[in-house]
Design a protein around this nucleic acid. Structure first.
Length: 352
DNA sequence: TCTGGGGTCCTAGGACCC
DNA sequence: TCTGGGGTCCTAGGACCC
């Protein structure tokens, strides 16, 4: 507003060991102990770790570790079920605290958010970051780490350097010094599969990705994804912070059975249950379903999906269930079923 | 004793139309 | 008899993230 230009920064806020920390809030005796949150809390069942406390991570258990493996590694850890409502409530308090700093908040799940801030020339973004940490801690007794960047990508990656409870800054000036020598999957948005394909092209570092020929990338990865990968390598993320309220594109439920379903009649019955659940939430959310998509994971971990459009956009449970059962009929295999899922694709604002 | 559940976005290929 | 392109819509699935 004044004649002196302020600088624009992006902060990425990430709660430290969020699910475990949220459990410690109501069970202080767990502090300092290995705590593993995942599944229904029974580490002898199928499932994976959602969040492990730092003490558990030091013993070789992290997000995505099978619960049974975690139990083998740390038999005396405290295993807790995922308590969605509890974390949603804690998350809402965190996000409210962030909104006392700025209205420009983009929420990414329970425990992360981007903040867009303008910083006066006399101040620095680290001061704002520490103020964010102070307000979150005061409001919720939870610690967070804050990454600072000129865009979301830089800020997001900076956070990992600041953990736990720290502040770290990455800009275009330091991007290559920090990341240039690392493999491409060190960058947010690039996973193992893409990294393997990049290796086939002779690209094994972030620096090489930034220097890569965009046309070569477009040929290999597609007209949108190719150029996007190059921008990621260069630390440029054009996406601005999205402050518009989140609108779901789909509502789904899936279940991994403790014992694979051998009888197809059981699969049909489970499909009905999931479809009714999804339909109820579609109606409760005052949305209309366009298509029902059914996912089957067969015995040994091979996944297939089929979908069926509804005769017309609808929230009628009977129509949604019929579409799901119709989609289920498109599966011709009859192997044991490990997982079954039903997802409703919803009509968007623009009608598509 | 392998490998959850909730999502989003993009691409490829076939159908169909002009 | 042989043979176009371009555009759009729909579906399946890949890839990634929290």
């Amino acid at each position: 507003m004044s004649g002196v230009a302020s600088a624009r920064w992006v902060l990425h806020v990430d709660l430290d060991q969020f699910l475990a920390a949220a459990e410690m809030l109501r069970r202080p005796e767990l502090r300092g102990r290995p705590v593993v949150v995942g599944g229904d809390g029974d580490p002898t069942k199928r499932g994976v770790v959602s969040t492990a406390s730092y003490e558990a991570r030091a013993l070789g258990v992290g997000s995505g570790t099978p619960l049974r493996t975690a139990f083998k590694r740390i038999p005396d850890a405290t295993f807790l079920p995922v308590d969605k409502e509890h974390y949603e409530a804690a998350s809402a308090e965190v996000m409210a605290a962030l909104r006392t700093v700025t209205d420009e908040v983009e929420v990414l799940g329970w425990d992360e958010a981007f903040l867009g801030i303008e910083v006066a020339p006399t101040d620095d973004p680290e001061a704002v970051a520490r103020e964010v940490q102070r307000r979150v801690l005061a409001a919720t007794h939870l610690h967070c780490s804050v990454g600072i960047g000129r865009n979301r990508l830089q800020a997001k990656i900076a956070t990992s350097y600041g953990k736990p409870a720290g502040v770290y800054r990455i800009t275009g000036d330091t991007w290559f010094a920090e990341l240039g020598h690392l493999p491409p999957d060190a960058v947010w948005g690039i996973g193992a599969k893409t990294a393997a394909k990049l290796t086939e092209l002779g690209i094994t570092t972030v620096r090489q990705l930034a220097d890569a020929d965009v046309d070569v990338l477009a040929t290999r990865f597609g007209p949108a994804t190719g150029p996007w990968l190059q921008r990621l390598g260069a630390g440029r993320d054009g996406a601005t912070i999205r402050t518009t309220p989140y609108v779901r594109r789909s509502i789904g439920h899936e279940v991994t059975f403790q014992h694979d379903l051998e009888d197809w009649a059981d699969v049909v019955a489970q499909c009905r249950v999931l479809a009714q659940q999804v339909a109820a939430e579609t109606r409760a959310g005052d949305r209309l379903c366009l298509r029902a998509v059914v996912k089957v994971r067969w015995k040994p971990f091979f996944t297939e999906t089929h979908g069926r459009a509804l005769p017309e956009p609808s929230d009628d449970p009977a129509l949604i269930e019929a579409a799901a059962l119709g989609a289920l009929e498109l599966f011709t295999d009859r192997r044991p079923v490990r997982l079954l899922g039903v997802r409703a694709e919803l009509v968007r604002d623009d009608g598509s």
